[in-house]
Amino acid sequence: MAIENKKGWISWFNPIKYGFDRWLFAMHRFTGIVIGLYLMAHVFETSNILRGPLTWNNVMVFLDWPFGIHFGPYILSALLLVVVFHALNGLRLTIVENGLMLVRPYRPEYPYKPKSLAGWNFALKIVLGILMIVISVFGIVYIFTGVIL
């Protein structure tokens, strides 16, 4: 009865003791799952149009004002953040996971900070992080006020 000491899927979302990239991994996993679930819900939501214009309008109003609270824009804003993070981090991963924008092999020196996570890779994280904030601000302002900045 040897119990394998496996960490399991729950450990994906436990990046506390590791570095920044491990946080990005956990968030990328989480946002990926959220987007997957959203797409299924979205197909179900838009399929309501088959039941006629009245049902469609009722569904739209319910999603904008669930249980009498004007909560729709908050859901949309959260979704925007999730999608923008997943898209931009995915862009970075596509670049670095093909061996581009990384350091050349180096000689390790104490205290052994991994350089693959620094350098151009880190610069990419900063640039895309700023881009994420900018896109989110534009998007959230649009969602709440309907004004394109």
Partner: peptide, 13 residues
């Protein structure tokens, strides 16, 4: 998936 945890914990860098 390039989580970087392996590099982070490696005792020899």
């Amino acid at each position: 998936h390039f989580a970087g945890a392996c590099s982070e914990v490696c005792p020899k860098g």
